[in-house]
């Protein structure tokens, strides 16, 4: 969306840990986008967020739109990916769920941001189904081969709109 007087402020936020196999997919996609987007347009911020917690609510504050790239358990085959808005899917809060518990992640940050009413109007997630998130560096072939398509769609979303 381009308004008369200013471009929409967009944050492209990669989440995940490249030491944990396919959890590094966000970083890998972001690195590619960064190389292609040089020089960076001033209204777009590319951020390798790593594995932050609740502070992501603050990281996103003030942007008109946030595009998150992360490994996601979609219940599909490895390398599958989906683009969805937060209205289209519910993120399971790990910290409140029995069975798996990691420290607070993106789902908790979104819940906190919503409770404080500081979320950006539009949050889009590109979720990629991992094959493995064991402690090892490097992506599986299935996830690696999904990257060009994902990058292309994000690129189009950033620049062709």
């Amino acid at each position: 969306m381009v308004t008369q007087d200013r471009l929409m402020k967009i944050l492209v936020l990669a989440l995940g840990n490249p030491l944990r196999g396919d959890d590094g997919v966000g970083c890998a996609v972001l690195a590619g986008l960064r190389e292609t987007a040089v020089p960076y347009p001033p209204h777009i911020t590319f951020l390798d967020g790593g594995t932050p917690g609740l502070e992501t609510a603050l990281t996103m504050q003030g942007y008109d739109k946030v595009i998150v790239i992360d490994a996601a358990n979609l219940g599909e085959r490895p390398g599958s990916w989906r683009r969805f808005s937060l209205a289209e899917a519910s993120l399971v809060q790990q910290a409140q769920m029995e069975g798996t518990l990691h420290d607070a992640g993106f789902a908790e940050a979104v819940a906190l941001g919503a409770a404080l009413d500081i979320l950006p109007p539009e949050i889009i997630v590109y979720g990629v189904q991992p094959e493995t998130i064991a402690w090892e560096m490097g992506l599986s072939t299935a996830v690696q081969s999904a990257i060009p398509q994902i990058s292309q769609q994000i690129w189009a979303e950033l620049f062709d709109a």
Binding site: D23, V92, I133
Partner: peptide, 15 residues
């Protein structure tokens, strides 16, 4: 305690 080290896999449920 910080027992595991970081991964933040999103767990997503579609309506």
């Amino acid at each position: 305690p910080c027992i595991s080290c970081s991964t933040h896999l999103l767990d997503v449920k579609f309506e």
